[in-house]
């Protein structure tokens, strides 16, 4: 049946036809919206409601958190880890993104190198880091063999191990949006800047970097939010003092302390939302994710 007949059958008249056209996008997203509502939003709400309704409607769980020393330490540690990992991925990822953006013939190879870890399970990569960073791991053995160490360093089960492993795992999330933003930049802009008297550093500072900011913001946001809730890696390579919010939640769930776990989850979710809101206000997440305008 042709497009023109369908609206005529449903509702005769020109304006009705226009409304039908406007409905099409809504109908297209409807299955996803229903799926998300039924299988994501409702369970999350049900879980969060436990923090307020168990055993009776109360704010006691939140009040308890506010005064909990252990929670404070873990929350601070989680934020700190997130900051360090975000900064680490940014510093290491930006140059790689620049290489990726400039690559021509090498591009497929570089993309595979960047994406390869992406396709490997986080669990496998975390175990790999345990093997590498352990007391008799590759890193220690190599340093000992080169005579740079007298006895093995303790890396595994320290914050350093958590930072190294998380930076490695989250790097693609930083690299890809930045590389994408850099690729969008018209190459004649850098030429124009150089022609107008800007040296290589000035070109980077005044042209390339500002124009890549949407990608940088997208990368920071992705890595920040992802590492905020990271669980497997800190649990495997971190020490007992490196507990993060997600580990604490898992611990409470194991103890069947559902109300406390739900309260912690609410705090984690709120923190992520606040950060997204800050980004939205300051830079506009819309611009951060406006990938291909050209």
């Amino acid at each position: 049946m042709s497009e023109a007949i369908a609206p005529a059958l449903l509702a005769p008249g020109r304006t009705a036809g226009m409304n039908w056209r406007r409905l099409v996008p809504l109908l297209l997203v409807a299955p996803l919206v229903l799926f998300m509502l039924a299988l994501y939003a409702l369970p999350v709400l049900a879980m969060l409601s436990r923090s307020l309704l168990e055993p009776a409607p109360t704010l006691a769980h939140y009040a308890e958190l506010a005064g909990d020393e252990v929670f404070h330490r873990i929350f601070t540690n989680t934020l700190w880890t997130t900051l360090v990992v975000t900064a680490g991925t940014l510093v290491l990822g930006y140059p790689v993104a620049m290489g990726l953006a400039r690559a021509r013939t090498l591009l497929p190879l570089l993309l595979i190198i960047v994406l390869l870890p992406f396709w490997t399970s986080v669990l496998v990569r975390s175990y790999a880091w345990m093997v590498l960073l352990g007391r008799h791991g590759l890193v220690n053995e190599a340093l000992l063999a080169m005579g740079m160490l007298d006895r093995p360093l303790r890396i595994l089960n320290t914050p350093l191990a958590v930072h190294i492993a998380m930076v490695h795992i989250l790097l693609p999330y930083m690299i890809l949006p930045i590389a994408n933003a850099l690729r969008q930049i018209d190459p004649s802009l850098a030429r124009a800047a150089a022609g107008l008297g800007a040296g290589p550093w000035a070109v980077f500072r005044q042209v390339t970097l500002p124009l890549s900011m949407p990608g940088v913001m997208a990368g920071i946001l992705l890595v920040f939010v992802l590492s905020l809730g990271f669980y497997i890696t800190p649990a495997l390579v971190g020490g007992p003092r490196d507990m993060t919010l997600s580990m604490l939640i898992a611990q409470r769930v194991e103890q069947l302390d559902w109300a406390y776990a739900a309260t912690l989850s609410a705090v984690l979710l709120a923190t992520a939302l606040v950060i997204i809101a800050i980004f939205q206000r300051a830079f506009g997440v819309g611009t951060a994710f406006r990938m291909s305008a050209r």
Binding site: D186, S188, L189, R191, A192, A193, A194, G195, L196, G197, A198, G199, P200, A202, V203, Q206, V207, P210, L211
Partner: peptide, 28 residues
């Protein structure tokens, strides 16, 4: 190098810096 030749250049696609105002572009 290009940035030390002190030559004015106009490109076909204008190559104006999109993140700068007209005045900032000219002041560059």
């Amino acid at each position: 190098p290009a940035h030390r030749r002190n030559i004015g250049m106009v490109f076909q696609n204008y190559a104006l810096f999109p993140h700068l105002t007209v005045a900032e572009n000219i002041g560059f």
